[in-house]
Amino acid sequence: MKKITILGIGNRLMKDDGIGIYIVEELMKERILDVNYSIGETDVDYCLEVIEETDYLIVIDAVESGSDYGAVSMVDLKNINPGSLGISAHNIHLFHQLKCQGSPGVLIGIEPFMVSFHWGLSEELNDSLPMIIKKVKRNIKSTIKSI
């Protein structure tokens, strides 16, 4: 059986940029999936260590795509254009490295409402969190079935 890791990245100090962290923390509490969970935040070196120890990676992060806030999207890591994700500490290095390594996995992106200096999620995204988590779980389960 493949070792599957769900990695939450983002920055809690930048409002909705931390959504990946909050979602993975909730998934860790439930432990309904037989996978490894990890919180990488913006520590690229730690994230790269996690990636080396897994066979299949599911990254959860805020992704500004122009959709309505709270929208959940999924893209194969091999198809990511790191430059299109915007510039942040975890995007500019981590996603370039994932692309270079050809790491098997997916990025589950959550459309933020607001990214700015502030601890915690925006009220808008926080209110939508239960529905977002439900959508993310559905994506994860379908992904796991397909590998």
Rank of each mutant, 00 (worst) to 15 (best):
M1L: 08
K2P: 15
K3Y: 00
T5A: 11
T5W: 03
I6W: 07
L7R: 04
G8E: 02
I9H: 08
I9S: 08
I9G: 07
G10V: 04
G10E: 10
R12N: 10
L13Y: 09
L13T: 01
L13N: 09
M14D: 02
D17V: 01
I19D: 08
G20S: 11
I21M: 13
I21D: 13
Y22K: 12
Y22R: 10
V24C: 14
E25H: 07
M28C: 03
M28L: 12
M28E: 15
K29Q: 06
K29P: 01
K29V: 01
R31A: 14
R31M: 07
V35L: 07
Y37C: 10
G40P: 08
G40F: 09
G40Q: 10
G40I: 04
G40R: 10
E41R: 08
T42I: 13
D43S: 12
D45A: 12
D45R: 08
D45P: 00
C47A: 15
C47K: 02
L48E: 07
V50D: 05
E52L: 10
E53H: 12
T54C: 15
Y56P: 06
L57H: 04
I58L: 06
V59C: 14
I60F: 04
I60C: 05
D61F: 04
D61K: 05
A62S: 15
V63E: 09
V63S: 11
E64F: 01
S65T: 12
Y69T: 03
G70Y: 06
S73K: 12
S73E: 06
V75L: 07
D76M: 06
N79D: 14
N79K: 11
N81L: 11
P82I: 02
P82F: 05
G83P: 00
G83M: 11
S84A: 14
S84P: 00
S84T: 03
L85W: 03
L85H: 03
G86I: 01
G86L: 07
S88T: 12
A89T: 08
H90C: 05
N91A: 10
K99G: 01
Q101P: 00
S103N: 05
S103D: 02
V106I: 14
L107G: 05
L107Q: 08
I108W: 06
G109H: 05
I110Y: 09
I110L: 09
P112I: 02
F113H: 15
V115Y: 06
V115E: 09
S116K: 14
S116E: 15
S116D: 13
F117E: 13
H118N: 14
H118V: 00
W119Q: 14
G120M: 12
L121P: 04
S122G: 04
S122E: 04
E124F: 02
E124A: 13
L125V: 13
D127C: 03
S128T: 00
L129W: 02
L129S: 03
M131I: 01
I132R: 10
I132T: 02
I133H: 04
I133N: 05
I133M: 11
K135W: 01
K137Q: 12
K137L: 13
R138V: 00
R138L: 10
R138Y: 08
I140F: 09
S142L: 09
S142V: 00
S142Y: 03
K145E: 15
K145S: 14
S146R: 15
